[in-house]
Write a protein that binds this DNA or RNA. Sequence first.
DNA 1: ATGCTGACGTCGC
DNA 2: CGCGACGCCAGCA
Length: 115
Amino acid sequence: MKDKRNQQDFFDLVFQVVRQIPEGKVTSYGAIARYLGIGSSARTVGWAMNASHHQKEYVPAHRVLNRNGQLTGKFHFNPPESMQQALEKEGIVVNEDQVQNFQHHYWDPAVELAL
DNA sequence: ATGCTGACGTCGC
DNA sequence: CGCGACGCCAGCA
């Protein structure tokens, strides 16, 4: 709270939350945004993912989808198909850039991390 | 310094 | 039911 280091760029916060996503689970930008307390700024979460590739630590951005469970940012991956491949590899079924049983694989930080 | 865009989400018409 | 616009934060031209 009073510690300045807690004030890390909200980007770092996003990376740490994403890194805590268990294998075979997925979450949405809005969920993370809400968990961090920025609420409506889900866009910034996605933007953070863009910077994730800058991070030294590995960030499973492929586990982060939009509210529809759609692989909106798959084109930002390298290659784009790697996102779906990574998800399927974890046991998640993806069809037409859409995660099947999205809700079943949904991982809410606000719930799992039990605020 | 100002403005636009961007891997979203929600409300309104 | 479908489409559009706004809000939010940060990076970049």
